[in-house]
Design a protein around this nucleic acid. Structure first.
Lengths: 222, 222
DNA sequence: TAACTTATTGACCGGATGGTTAGGCCCGTG
DNA sequence: CACGGGCCTAACCATCCGGTCAATAAGTTA
């Protein structure tokens, strides 16, 4: 519990004092992340953060000018894994495989980041603080993903690979709704739900009908 | 803003003093609902509630023993419209019509109660307070709805009225995911989204395929 | 070692918050 | 009319919170 894990993510050329400073700053950030995420902003006091980080309260104010500053630092730290480039291995695969891969990516991402996602959604819903610093990156990510879906679905429709009863934008919106629904299911029931595979199967059935190609890989990897 | 609306929901045989008491209690509750829902528990001070209700702070503590008491009262008041009996006009309609009606009911309910739903979801996500008093009723409602869906879908499958590629429970779960996804879409984009109709159309297409009967009514009523 | 910068702390401050109390007002009842 | 109880309030209290500050330890440099 009181383990003093030297984090040592610092730059290489740095004096030991600076190293220690970075270390303490990191310890504060870790404690703040834990507390802010589990209790929220207003319910977490700086004294608690200080105690959890084994630091004096004043030191926190030396590293971060104000409580909101600390919160922003926590936010951006939590947002780091959200910098994903969904449009990666685009080239070789056909539209169906790419769509399947995108869906898997979404669900895997949700599974791996359930904690911070829960925090962010709560934060977004109640626009209490820093909703701007959140809506920006989140919306950007979301819109990028959506645009990719629309494009892929449109091309798949053109090649008669997926359902064409509705415009691509509508299909993409519906697909996103499904994914978001599964997301909140995963947020509320943290049992390692293996039915994600079944959900993927049903989505593919809906999207591609009989076109159930072998696609990429198994949907869930540890 | 400072309108003194006599609510008068009291019992008939009551002294004017008691009437006034009930009235003030109601005024406090209304103000508390407004504040708690828009700012949350910890961000709302009793002084604010008092000011918003045109009452002295002490009076609040006379009506409600503690701040948490007031919050619980707000919770149960907000939960009142959630006491729905989905299994209402069951008899005459066939399974497809009933399912369509259930879907419409869900979405209309979400549209009409977006405010409190947003509040509840945030409250549930961050289990900060009274999560027990919430999870109980909410889960009960949710499970009832789900059971109804499973039953209806099972019977529809038996009569070959909807897609049979997956067990009824899985289809119901997927349908719920879709609805929840649409829900959070409505929670985040408060523009009176008319695309709910399109979503319903896509769901029906998915569930019933070509079986697109005339169903009940227009999906959205003022 | 002396001067100087950087980290870190305990003690402190003004303000706000949840909660209390002593006392007034109002009204039905003897 | 007095009086007693339900309704309501101004003033008060203890506590906690975000934030500041003077002092000090820990290098670093000259």
């Amino acid at each position: 519990m009181a383990a003093v894990s030297k984090v040592n993510t610092a730059e290489q050329g740095a004096s030991p004092a600076e190293l220690r400073a970075l270390d303490s700053r990191d310890e504060i950030l870790k404690a703040a992340i834990e507390l802010f995420a589990n209790r929220g902003f207003h319910e977490t006091s700086m004294a608690e953060v200080a105690r959890a980080a084994n630091v004096s309260k004043a030191l926190i104010f030396w590293h971060f000018k104000t409580k909101e500053d600390l919160f922003m630092a926590v936010l951006s730290r939590l947002l780091e894994p959200y910098a994903i480039d969904f449009a990666e291995e685009a080239g070789a695969l056909d539209e169906v495989a790419q769509l399947t891969r995108l869906i898997e990516l979404y669900l895997m991402f949700v599974r791996d980041n359930a904690g911070s996602i829960r925090f962010f959604v709560a934060q977004l819903l109640r626009g209490e603080l820093a909703s701007d610093a959140l809506t920006g990156p989140v919306m950007q990510l979301y819109e990028g993903y959506r645009a990719l879906l629309v494009d892929l679905i449109g091309r798949a429709q053109a090649r008669d690979l997926c359902l064409k009863d509705f415009p691509a934008a509508a299909v993409a919106r519906m697909l996103l709704s499904m994914l978001n629904g599964i997301l909140i299911g995963m947020l509320f029931a943290e049992d390692e739900s293996a039915d994600v595979a079944s959900a993927i199967a049903m989505i593919r059935q809906w999207l591609f009908g009989a076109h159930a190609g072998a696609a990429t890989d198994g949907p869930a990897a540890s």
